[in-house]
Each structure stands twice: as structure tokens, then as C-alpha cells.
């Protein structure tokens, strides 16, 4: 029993699923979310260049079938877009703090 324990552990680890690779559906969902946030930022006239370039990188990776990279880039683009939305929202009043009076 004692001898078989490490063997059992080894077998268990070798069959344990590694982090699942992203597939096309994951990419499409992540891209759609990023695109929605990006459009909202553009509608607020506060799009960031990095959102646009990161979204383009996600599409390029997705078109090339590299879904892991595509999902990662899409998530980054979504985060950037959301940050720009927060910026535009807070600046609606915050700009006054910088005004020369």
C-alpha cells in the first residue's frame, strides 16, 4: 500500500486536466464583451488608442486560430475600455478641480 501511493499520485496528476485551452466560442464571447465596452467608450468621445490596438490584436490572433492569445487580448481590451469609461464618467465633474479661477 505504501509503495503504491506515489504511483497512484503520479497517475492522478498525469490525468489531471491542465488549464483548458481557449476555443473559438471563448474568443467570440470575450471579443464581443470587449467590443461592447469599446463602443461605449467611443460613444463617450473617450476612446483610448490602446483599446483600439489591443482589440485589433485580439482579432488578429482570433483570425489566426490562436484563441488563448485572442482571449487574453480581448480581456485586456475590455479592461482598457472600461477604464476609459470610468475616466470619462469621473471627469464630468473632476475637471473643475484643475480649473484656474
Amino acid at each position: 500500500m505504501k509503495r503504491s501511493f506515489p504511483l497512484v499520485m503520479l497517475l492522478a496528476l498525469s490525468f489531471a486536466p491542465a488549464a483548458r485551452a481557449a476555443n473559438e466560442a471563448d474568443y467570440k464571447a470575450a471579443y464581443a464583451a470587449a467590443e461592447t465596452a469599446s463602443k461605449e467608450a467611443a460613444g463617450m468621445r473617450n476612446q483610448w488608442t490602446t483599446t483600439v490596438s489591443t482589440l485589433a490584436a485580439a482579432k488578429k490572433a482570433g483570425d489566426g486560430g490562436d484563441f488563448d492569445r485572442a482571449v487574453a487580448a480581448a480581456k485586456e481590451a475590455e479592461a482598457l475600455a472600461k477604464a476609459s469609461i470610468v475616466q470619462a464618467t469621473s471627469e464630468k465633474d473632476a475637471w473643475k478641480a484643475m480649473e484656474i479661477r
Binding site: N46, T49, L80, A83, S84, Q87, E91, A94, K96, M98
Partner: peptide
Amino acid sequence: RYFYTRRGQ
């Protein structure tokens, strides 16, 4: 407002 508003990354 445009002049004093922060924008960009």
C-alpha cells in the same frame, strides 16, 4: 471643459 478634462490612457 475640454481643456481641463483628463483623457487617454
